[in-house]
């Protein structure tokens, strides 16, 4: 009875996401009515102006799709890291995937490479950082999890230093503002090819996580316990970390640094559907997409000049975090 209750919350979130998706398409400086949308997509493509089609297919739909994909991935990565590290405060950047991406992007911008290369640099640097963290942690003595987290903190602070140095030597007239803007996180410059660039690694990372989600439950217990229940702890943990990193890297490389989603959304959903990843992971994926879609709608519609989405998620995320640490301890 309880189970169907949780499943229906997941389905309900899905319905909400579909509604929000349609509404988001109609919102914008160039309004698109529902009829125009349906005509452009299915019924009478010839009746719709080329200008509307260009806006719809080249600008608005890619951006909406990407905000959903990034929200879904960051939130799924956050939920997965929280389970693997047995730490409710873990977020997608816990091991330095984001700061690694920032270094890569800053370097590419410094070298005045084109937008696609910035994305690729961010992606590769992000994965490289985590590879380094995992490699270093293999040599760490003592508690395995602690070793990984400490290696992550150290290496992300190193990449942070590199990013700072790049900003120092960057031309303050054109390069530095571009780096700063990238770091704030934004979906404003989304192009259709970005969606495809991000979709492949996200799919490769998300699919195993969905299949392994029951076993993430066992990883939240002690290693010994999980092992005696037949889980190959090392292999499952490694796979989950690799997948979560892959989707984080893909997200950050197309959107810049968007904080808080991976922490806030899984936490909200833990309260709604409980801690069992059987429901929590799908709920986080849908909820994350919904959350970032709505925040991005605000980001592009609230003011004449767009507010970078990374700033908005912090505005929402920081008060939530404060509430999280001050509330009474009950179901968590």
């Amino acid at each position: 009875m309880k189970k169907t209750h949780y499943s229906s919350i997941v389905v309900g979130l899905g319905v909400l996401l579909c509604l929000a998706f349609v509404v988001s398409v109609t919102l914008g400086r160039f309004p698109i009515t529902l009829r125009q949308l349906l005509n452009a997509l299915f019924f009478a493509r010839s009746e719709v102006s080329d200008q509307l089609k260009a806006i719809l297919f080249n600008v608005r739909l890619p951006r909406i799709l990407l905000s959903c994909m990034v929200g879904c991935s960051l939130s799924a990565a956050g939920a997965s890291y929280q389970g693997v590290f047995q730490n409710p405060m873990a977020a997608p950047d816990i091991l330095g995937a984001s700061s690694g991406a920032a270094t890569g992007a800053a370097l590419a911008i410094l070298l005045e490479l084109p937008g696609q290369m910035v994305m690729l640099f961010a992606f590769v640097f992000s994965l490289g950082t985590i590879a380094l963290v995992m490699l270093v942690s293999r040599f760490a003595r003592g508690e395995k999890l602690l070793g990984i987290i400490l290696a992550g903190i150290m290496i992300s602070s190193l990449t942070g230093a590199v990013t700072s140095y790049i900003k120092l030597v960057a031309d303050p007239n054109n390069i530095l503002p571009e780096i700063t803007y990238w770091l704030m996180g934004s979906l404003a410059k989304t192009m259709p090819r970005d969606v495809i660039f991000a979709a492949v690694p996200m799919a490769i990372g998300l699919i195993p996580l969905v299949f392994l989600r029951w076993r993430i439950n066992l990883l939240t217990l002690s290693d010994n316990e999980a092992r005696t229940m037949g889980v190959n702890v090392g292999a499952v943990r490694f796979t989950v970390i690799v997948c979560a990193t892959l989707i984080t890297a893909a997200s950050v490389s197309v959107s810049g640094l968007i904080g808080w989603v991976g922490l806030v959304v899984p936490h909200l959903l833990r309260r709604l559907v409980g801690n069992n990843y059987r429901h929590l992971l799908p709920a986080s994926m849908i909820g994350g997409a919904l959350f970032l879609l709505i925040v991005d709608d605000i980001s592009r519609n609230l003011l004449i000049t767009e507010i970078p989405i990374g700033i908005l998620t912090s505005v929402v995320g920081a008060p939530f975090f404060l509430w999280l640490i001050t509330r009474k301890k009950e179901v968590a």
Binding site: K2, G83, Q86, N87, P88, N217, T220, L221, S222, N224, E225, R227, T228, M229, G230, V231, N232, R270, G274, N275, N276, V331, A332
Partner: peptide, 25 residues
């Protein structure tokens, strides 16, 4: 480990895991 798990079960001292699961889960 997966075969051993069908032969031996381990019951640790009662503990408090990070995340709260229902008894059923």
């Amino acid at each position: 480990p997966s075969v051993l798990a069908t032969r031996v079960a381990f019951i640790p001292q009662s503990h408090a895991p990070t995340f709260n699961y229902t008894v059923r889960d």
